[in-house]
Design a protein around this nucleic acid. Structure first.
Length: 751
DNA sequence: CACAGGTCTCTTTTT
DNA sequence: GAGACCTGTG
């Protein structure tokens, strides 16, 4: 099948497809037909350039993206799709490591430690090293270790990089012990998969050479999200044939917090000086006004590649902006608005999505939808294999199967409760270690373990016997049958009934179990030598998340999700909720010294805006409960970056929109009145005029006055200028020097 | 050993 | 304000 590029693609897309050799950077703006371009490019490589399918590697971040790409290639070139490696960074590395694990000192059948395994291991490490989590919060330390791995730093390099820093040296010690614990369990965590593959390539040039020869053409999707380790991996693989095509959008780089390095894409041409760059700026998604707003907002970023999205669409309706008094009122406004639209037949619930900055924001929205009987779903990050029920049951399965690491057995030793407390477990564990036994085998020797209570002894012995019995009886049974037997023998079903506080919850648990069984059955059918550890390895990476966005039941319901979760999706009607200073941009970005933090928030805003196809509604609340505290906030600075002429601000509100829910209660007014910031509350409905009312009140200090800033401390006011939208104040701070800020946000106090 | 009550924390998330 | 987690008591 010959491909008519000119007919099926636009000029830029066709150009991107034709750039087959050498390094290529495709800057694909939001909604510019990125996936289409990638898929055509692959088909072109195969059909026109006679590239062999097994010489192509395509890397993505999510399984969803990999699957979509695979499916679409299959449609175009069915016979070749099979032989191409189109998968995530992690599963690609897994495939490579699987063949070479022993070279790095890992067992051939190493396991993958997921988030909860990591946590368990960290716990152990803290106990072993008697680290005080007060000084070294587990979560923070885990994050530091993870980012060290993202930067390709092992414990030793990490120590080298932080010589003399006492607290970091302690973390290095934890890092060391954590790696040891992983090794002892024959496991790698997700970050290890990438880091170890890079190590493999660096230490074994012949292995690298083999894969360089294999992957003569490499493509990377969402390149703006790559971290240093992933960059290095790609660089190594591509360094021989140099046919590297990366696709991404620097304006949509929103994962800095998990190691993504935006300079990978910004500096691509520095790293590959002969790179060809193609920009895809034609947008096929949104109306003119939405696109104009997105372009305006993102143009405030300095560190970016110049791009302007354009469209053939009409300008469409204005972007609506509403400021409500409370977060609850905001939720009511959104729910009512959606209800009215659906009643008028303008759209269906499924056409609407509410985007939020933080997960806690979903609560009020859920209440508002529930009260109105509006079908909705909150897209949660909850993933199938991380679910407690699934972790419990797979731990049982692996323990029964034998060869499970102790971590699994330890998880279920007293679950459901069988009278074995933490103290007894610890004793059995020490005994196991001293005698070189697995934890399960140590249970059988309960009589010889010193200091274990009679009750616990019985518990340990019967646990061991139960596992052996199941193992013996179910030798030839299907995995799903073994699972049934486990549930029966352990009384896990009864345990779940106790755990679930509602019937719905219980049914959800049962649903998980059924899904697990299905998954086991289909694995057994498709695999020559089914093996549970292999099953876990396949699926632990196979995100299989219960995400409700795409596949399967496309129910007609409103979706509520974080802006991060919305990346890559689109909806006719989008609501962005919580457009407030302190929430979006978040407090952290506002107080950060690093301007890249604010730029990242702005990119997130850009991502959120560009999700909308036809209608975009942005809202915020004057008052919101955050972290158990009532906080007052002005509208987001990002709102001021959208030109007024693109906005419908409801300056003359219709009476019908002034529902009681939006009015503050007298108690709230009283509360606000006692608050130090009197501008926090409007009396009744406040007219919103950008440039005046939003944070634009004249400060109560003058040039030359001493003022205090919540973060920067004291300083002297050098200049106060009335800007287009707010008063701009220049302050020379004693500690941090001269800063320019908007009076509305800086909350400077006269000293 | 289990449970109750006190304490602490609290962006964003994939694999 | 809610959820996770730790500690003290029965």
């Amino acid at each position: 099948m010959a491909i008519d590029l000119e007919k099926e693609l636009n000029k830029e897309q066709a150009e991107a497809v034709r750039q087959t050799d050498g390094p290529v950077l495709i800057l694909a703006g939001a909604g510019s037909g990125k996936t289409r371009t990638i898929v055509y490019r692959m088909a072109y490589l195969l059909d026109e350039m006679q590239v062999r399918p097994w010489n192509i590697l395509a890397l993505t971040f999510t399984n969803k993206a990999a699957k979509e790409m695979r499916d679409r290639i299959k449609e175009m070139v069915p016979e070749d799709a099979r032989d191409m490696w189109v998968s995530t960074f992690h599963s690609t590395c897994l495939k490579i490591l699987f063949a070479h694990a022993e070279k790095l000192g890992y067992p051939k059948n190493f396991e993958i430690a997921d988030a909860s395994d990591q946590k368990t291991l960290m716990r152990d490490v803290y106990k072993k090293l008697s680290v005080d989590p007060k000084y070294f919060p587990e979560k923070k330390v885990s994050r530091i270790i993870s980012s060290a791995k993202d930067e390709l730093m092992g414990p030793n390099e990490f120590a080298e990089a932080h010589k003399g820093d006492m607290s970091l040296l302690k973390i290095m010690e934890i890092y060391h012990a954590y790696q040891d614990a992983l090794r002892a369990n024959g496991s790698m965590d997700f970050d290890d998969l990438i880091m170890n593959t890079v190590r493999l390539f660096k230490n074994f040039p012949e292995v690298l050479d083999h894969y360089q020869e294999k992957f003569k053409y490499i493509m990377v999707d969402e390149y703006q999200d790559t971290n240093t380790a992933q960059f290095e991996l790609v660089r190594l693989l591509a360094s021989k044939y140099r046919n590297l095509c990366v696709v991404g959008d620097d304006d949509q780089s929103i994962y800095r917090f998990r190691g993504a390095n935006i300079y990978n894409i910004l500096d691509f041409e520095k790293n590959f000086p002969d790179a060809k760059v193609v920009k895809l700026e034609q947008n096929y998604r949104s109306t003119g006004n939405i696109l104009a707003a997105a372009n305006e907002v993102i143009s405030n970023n300095r560190e970016r590649k110049q791009k302007v999205l354009r469209t053939n669409e009409e300008p469409g309706s204005l972007i609506r902006f509403r400021q409500l008094d409370t977060a609850g009122g905001e939720a009511v406004f959104i729910a009512e608005d959606i209800r009215k639209k659906v009643e008028k037949g303008e759209c269906t619930y499924g056409d609407c999505a509410v985007l939020i900055r933080t997960n806690v924001q979903s609560k009020e929205l859920e209440d508002a939808f529930r009260v109105r009987r509006i079908d909705y779903d909150v897209v949660k990050g909850l993933r199938f294999w991380d679910t407690k029920v699934i972790k419990d049951l797979t731990s049982y399965l692996l323990t029964v199967a034998g060869g499970a690491n102790d971590m699994r057995t330890l998880r279920i030793i007293n679950l459901p409760k069988r009278g074995i407390g933490a103290a007894s477990v610890e004793k059995a564990r020490v005994y196991a270690e001293e005698n070189g036994l697995s934890f399960l085998d140590a249970c059988a020797k309960a009589d010889s373990i010193p200091g274990v209570s009679a009750k616990a002894k019985t518990g340990l012995l019967s646990f061991h016997q139960m596992i052996l019995d199941i193992r013996e009886d179910m030798k030839d049974a299907k995995f799903s049958e073994i699972l049934d037997r486990i549930i029966k023998d352990t009384g896990y079903n009864e345990y779940l009934m106790g755990e679930a506080d509602t019937t719905d919850k219980y049914l959800e648990f049962i649903d998980y179990i059924n899904k697990l069984k299905e998954s086991l059955d289909s694995y057994e059918e498709d695999t020559d030598e089914p093996d549970l550890i292999d099953f876990m390895r396949q699926n632990g990476l196979e995100g299989n998340n219960l995400d409700k966005t795409g596949d399967g039941e496309t129910k007609d319901r409103v979706l509520v999700m974080t802006m991060h979760n919305a990346k890559g999706l689109e909806f006719p009607n989008v609501y962005i909720a919580g457009m407030e200073e302190g929430l979006f941009p978040g407090y952290g970005a506002i107080s950060s010294e690093d301007h890249m933090a604010m730029e990242e928030e702005r990119r997130l805003c850009y991502v959120a805006i560009t999700r909308a196809r036809k209608n975009l509604t942005i809202s915020c609340a004057r008052q919101r409960m955050t972290n158990g505290e009532t906080r007052y906030a002005a509208a987001s600075r990002f709102m001021k970056e959208i030109p007024t002429e693109l906005l419908d601000m409801n300056i003359h509100p219709k009476k019908t929109e002034r529902t009681e829910h939006m009015e503050p209660t007298s108690r709230q007014i009283a509360k606000a009145a006692f608050n130090e910031k009197p501008q926090a509350f409007s009396k009744g409905f406040q007219k919103i005029k950008l440039g005046k009312d939003i944070g634009g009140t004249k400060p109560d200090y003058n040039e030359g006055d001493r003022v205090r800033h919540f973060k920067f401390g004291e300083g002297t006011v050098q200049e106060i200028v009335q800007g287009a939208r707010d008063y701009e104040v220049t302050v020379n701070f004693d500690k941090v020097g001269v800063r320019k800020m908007f009076a509305g946000f800086a909350k400077l106090k006269k000293v």
